[in-house]
Computed example of a mutant assay.
Amino acid sequence: MSPAYAGPADVAAHGEYGPGRLDLSAGWNRPRYPFQGRITADGSGGFPAEPGRYHLYASYVCPWSQRSVIVIGLKGLRDVVSVSYVDDERDGRGWAFRERRGPDPVNGFAFLQEAYDATEPGYPGHLSVPVLWDRETGRIVSNDFPDISLDLGTAFDAYGDPSVRLYPEHLRAEIDELNAYVYENVNNAPYQAAAAVTQEDFESWRDRLTGALETLDRRLAGRRYLLGDELTEADVRLWPTLARFDLFYNPMSGVSERPLTGYEHLWAYARDLYARPAFRDATDLAALPALLARARAIVNADVRRLKVEPRLADWDAPHGRG
């Protein structure tokens, strides 16, 4: 049987993705992620960790889903939790499966909306990735991206690499605090700056983002990873934003004359992580510049911002952080 593929993305026929699914009324309002089931080792969350039961729908162009794919690679779970990718392009119908990234190997869906409708018929909300799917119940476990990566990193020790401890108990308070800082000032800040409705708001987000990058650069001057010698969930959450900064986020939001390559320690740290197969295999840098044309849905053209051209740096250059 031939794979079920959606037709080409067609904005003229189906509109841009967003209206009716996202709140674009003022600035950038992070959408709700209503499916919040939890996978646990003992099944106490309702979904026990079992090999072959769960599937992750991801996207190479989505930083939030990239984090979960990285965790699967780091934990050695590629044969435990399967992964497939939606196409890079979307129109008003949302994410779809096309030949470029391959079919849906679990359900044969042509559109990711079918997974949402199978879980909640007529689901009206944001059609996001990542989506963690349960083969046994035939429904979405979670589309709440912070919880998905945490559960993948903690619940599957019996089936993956237990020596990889991305969210160890003795560091959880510090990881949580750092994750909150990075999310607010780095992960989400480019969207807020792009969609800022006033010049004052834009300048505020610009200062927050560039200031946070400087703070993190200083932090990494004396340690290999954000929490020291241990690679943790905090590193996984920061890295996708760094990978996108020069090719997408800075050209989109126009916040900085200083590229990622201008931060000595942050740039070396980013290359250090990219040298790991779990990070490299989850990344398609060549797909990022095309996102700029589609970013116009959130960019407020009335705000003065820097004109920044996308730039591809040498990610394979020696990082010197062994």
Rank of each mutant, 00 (worst) to 15 (best):
A194M: 06
D207W: 13
R219Y: 01
A234W: 10
G211F: 06
N179W: 06
N185Q: 14
A194L: 01
P190F: 06
V182N: 00
L231W: 01
L216T: 00
A196R: 10
E233H: 13
E233W: 10
L178A: 11
R218W: 05
N188L: 14
A221F: 00
Y225K: 07
S204T: 12
R224P: 06
Q192V: 09
Q199I: 08
A195S: 11
Y191D: 01
R224G: 00
P190R: 06
D229A: 14
A193L: 09
G222T: 14
P190G: 02
R223C: 13
T198S: 12
Q192Y: 11
A194T: 05
L226I: 03
E177M: 09
Y183N: 08
V197E: 09
V186S: 06
L231T: 00
Y183G: 05
D207E: 15
W205E: 09
A180W: 05
Y181V: 07
A189Q: 12
T215C: 12
E184G: 14
F202V: 06
D229H: 13
A234H: 07
L227S: 10
N185L: 07
L178H: 13
F202D: 04
A195F: 00
R218H: 06
F202I: 02
E177S: 15
D229V: 10
E177G: 07
I175Y: 14
I175R: 11
T210H: 03
G222A: 14
W205F: 15
G222D: 15
T232D: 11
Y225I: 03
L226N: 07
A195T: 03
R218Y: 01
A221T: 00
R218S: 04
E184I: 00
R208L: 02
Q192W: 09
Y191S: 03
L216D: 08
Q199V: 07
Q199F: 08
E233F: 06
N187F: 02
R206A: 05
R208V: 07
A180V: 00
E233C: 05
R219A: 09
N187P: 02
V182I: 09
W205Q: 11
E214V: 12
D217R: 04
